[in-house]
Design a protein around this nucleic acid. Sequence first.
DNA 1: GTCTATATATCGATAGAC
DNA 2: GTCTATCGATATATAGAC
Lengths: 198, 198
Amino acid sequence: MGQGQPDTRSRIQGAATALFRRNGYSGTGLKRIATEADAPFGSIYHFFPGGKQQLAEETIRTSGGEYGRMVLALLESVADPVESVTHAFEAAAHDIAANDYADACPIATVALEVASTNEVLRVATADVFEEWVGAGEQWFGRWVTDPNSARSLACSMIMMLEGAFVLSRASRDPEPLRVAGRSMAELLRASLERPVGD
Amino acid sequence: MGQGQPDTRSRIQGAATALFRRNGYSGTGLKRIATEADAPFGSIYHFFPGGKQQLAEETIRTSGGEYGRMVLALLESVADPVESVTHAFEAAAHDIAANDYADACPIATVALEVASTNEVLRVATADVFEEWVGAGEQWFGRWVTDPNSARSLACSMIMMLEGAFVLSRASRDPEPLRVAGRSMAELLRASLERPVGD
DNA sequence: GTCTATATATCGATAGAC
DNA sequence: GTCTATCGATATATAGAC
């Protein structure tokens, strides 16, 4: 099954991922997902008997995992850590302008929507964020010996990225992502110059 | 009219602000707003003939302005800038835990929801963010002489705050806000020690 | 200005023919 | 496993009595 059109279940997942990412959870209807996936409406409940919530939980965990691996691969593509961080934010700035400020973080919009209203989906988003922070902590740990500093840098990088996505999408301007990249590079530089926290 | 219960229009605005903040734009129905405001449904269209969009635009601009002034007042309540930033994020960490991770940024959820779907509301959120960055730029400008640095610090502080809100709400943990505060304090310290960018 | 009733559309979800 | 018809609930929005 490696070559042809993806199967129905995959197309539904893909359409749901794209729509939740751009329009959020409440803003995305199952009918629209079926249409974009070119699948009959009933197939959604055939493959996802838990309905909208099950579909959303799967897309959060799947697309969250993929996005985390993509960012990590981007970071690992440059040897010097400070240059790597700068390059990653620069790539994000370029990408968000190229996709017309539509496709940024795959789960942030849903995360804010469901934080106070849907415990199952809230936990799914929290798990993804924790996965990202853990991966970033390991990556920074290659250069920053203090474990607390490595985790703080990872957490800050993800927060800076999420905040920059909010401002960039709202203003239709890649500049916030560039500012975020310079700030993160400076934070990392400071950590490298001062190995143990003062 | 300074003493008694707020008038109907104000109650509708207040209920809309709280609901949009917690549950987002698509997740909030006008019926629910009328109920929480203890106002008849028809009054919404009496005071906001433009319907849901007009009501949302007013709440974005009004609550966005108030929130910005609140944060600025918080920053100005402490003389030393580094201590002030630390104190502000610490206050945010305390507040978000106290309100059960429901009330964070009044416009971020809506901003992400409407960025690709509603141009009127997108512009409203962009205007508010720009207002915040401008105010922060002026505040940082009291200690950081380079204008570019002052604006970068302001933009970074808002991005860090927004990103920390996403992670704190999702994980129901105030720690991301504390990490954000320490990182921002460090960024500011670096700017103060090195007055002109390298 | 206040409030109710209703119109029209769409929501998530289900049933059942094929 | 595919697809359509439809359910009941809810959405935004409007009309009109009071």
